[in-house]
Structure formats: structure tokens, C-alpha cells
Computed example of a mutant assay.
Amino acid sequence: MLIEQILKTKGGDVTIIKADHTLAEAARILDEARIGAVVAMNGDQLAGVLSERDILRQVARHGAYALQMTVENSMTRGVITATPQETIDQCLGRMTDRRIRHLPVLRDGRLAGIISIGDLVKWKIEEHKAEADAMAEYIKGG
């Protein structure tokens, strides 16, 4: 299954934040949206990804002061991305190898959506269930 299919079902909405916002603002956005990461943008260019873990690391290092720090100083740069034409297995492999939970999806260099490891696992389970159901029906009928 291709990432494009997941985006068609999930949608391409991505919660974004400006790189000059504070970690306190980012934490509020994550909490309100009930998500684990936001995409930081500079104009229409992907600047980085900020996750709950990034915020937690800064708080562990700097205490309450960390919440005044900017997203730009805390986000992951050099973001690993996916394309709509990649498979679930390709993206799961990349996420496992790189130990990341979120992949922004770029179409022609522009942000088209974001997928999480949870999204991919859900689709993988559904794929296996459909295969098992088809096999059971085949056995019953044959």
C-alpha cells in the first residue's frame, strides 16, 4: 500500500508552527490538537519537526526556562521525509532505522501531509486482517 492512499483517507492537514514561536506555545498546540509533533515552517519551506520529546529534553536540561526557548532552537532539522509514492513498508523501515515517529510527506517538494508510526501500524494491521479474511473465505468456499 502506498502513502498516497493513507493521505487520501487521513487527509493532508498538518499542524504547523513558526520556528520563532516558543516551546510553551508549541506545547499548547500539541495539547489542544492531541498530537505528538508539529511541523515547523519558514514560509512554505519545511524547517524542522518539533516533538513532545524535543520539548521534554529541553525542560530536563533547562528547567522552566526551556518553555521560553524557540521552536527553532529545539526542533529536529534535516528532517527525514516520505513521498506519496512510497510504501508503508519503506516508511516503517525508515522510521525504525532512524528511531523517529513522524514523517512529513512531500509532494514535488511541498508539504502534502504527515504520517505517524501509529498511522502506518494501523494500516498494516488492517492489511493483514483483510488478507486473513480473504484466505478464510477462500478456504470456506473451496
Rank of each mutant, 00 (worst) to 15 (best):
R94W: 00
G113A: 04
L67R: 08
I35F: 06
I117Y: 06
D13A: 12
D13R: 13
G11S: 10
I125C: 04
N73C: 01
Q45V: 12
V121F: 08
G93N: 14
L120F: 06
E25L: 06
R94Q: 13
L120S: 07
H21K: 15
I115R: 04
Q58H: 12
A27T: 11
Q45A: 15
D97Q: 12
E4C: 00
E126F: 11
T96M: 12
D97T: 12
K8W: 05
T15D: 11
K8Y: 05
V121R: 09
A33W: 13
V105K: 00
A112L: 05
I3A: 01
I35C: 08
A134F: 10
E86C: 08
L92F: 08
T22P: 06
V49C: 07
L7T: 06
L103R: 04
K124F: 01
Q5A: 14
V49W: 07
T76A: 14
D54K: 10
L7N: 02
K122C: 04
E127F: 10
R107I: 00
G93K: 11
D108N: 15
R34G: 03
E72S: 12
R101I: 01
V79I: 07
T70K: 01
E126S: 10
V59M: 11
T22H: 01
G43A: 02
A132T: 10
V39R: 02
Q85S: 13
D119I: 03
D54I: 10
R77V: 07
G11L: 10
P104V: 02
R101S: 04
V71G: 03
V79C: 09
L120E: 07
E137Y: 06
R53I: 03
G109Q: 06
G78I: 07
I35H: 09
E131C: 00
I55F: 08
T9V: 15
M75P: 06
A24N: 14
Q5E: 15
I115H: 03
K8E: 14
H128S: 10
D31K: 14
A27R: 13
T70W: 03
R77T: 12
L111K: 04
R98C: 11
C91Y: 05
E4Y: 01
H62Q: 11
V39D: 02
R99Q: 14
R98G: 00
D13Q: 13
I88W: 03
A19H: 09
Q90P: 06
I16P: 00
L67M: 14
E126K: 07
I100L: 05
T9P: 00
S116Y: 02
A27D: 03
T9D: 11
V79P: 04
R28V: 10
T76L: 01
K10R: 11
L23R: 03
D89F: 08
A136K: 13
S74G: 05
I6W: 02
K122E: 11
L50S: 04
G142N: 13
N42F: 00
A64N: 09
